[in-house]
Amino acid sequence: MSKDKREMLAGYVDGELPENERLAFEKELSENEELRAELEEFMTLKEMTGIMSYADLPDEVWENYWQSLYKKMERGFGWILFSIGAIGLLFYGLFQFISELFYNPSVPILVKIAVTVLALGAVILLVSFSRERLFAYKHDRYKEVKK
């Protein structure tokens, strides 16, 4: 079927064709059995969906919509501030800890070595796990399969 006819069929079903196009399409319809069958199929579909509408929510949900949204905004802002503060404190604590560890002569050399090795191990593990997860995700042939 030509592109024009497809578009006209859709427009005809929805009553969107101007008068002259509608008349031309009806003439085409009277001569084209395939087109009539498609029209019938589409009209049935339109009739079926015509008896349905999307569900709505109870009135009290709509009444509390703004309040609920405002709380989300407030909490979002709270989380941003909390995260900035926490990250700042974390870096400050880490800086203090490293300074204390390496510049304080009273800390035994064994502790300094152990902490360095521990940190190095943690970094290697983190990189290794991340790489593995990334590799698994990229090569998962079934990631689009619905479970």
Binding site: K3, R6, A10, G11
Partner: peptide, 30 residues
């Protein structure tokens, strides 16, 4: 189209596509 009862012009404006595209997309979707 079916459940929001929008006209082709409204859909074309909303999706920023030509009216003809609305019609052909509707045809294939149906």
């Amino acid at each position: 189209q079916h459940f929001r009862n929008m006209s082709y012009d409204e859909i074309a404006d909303l999706l920023d596509i030509p009216k003809g595209t609305v019609m052909s997309r509707l045809y294939y979707a149906r």
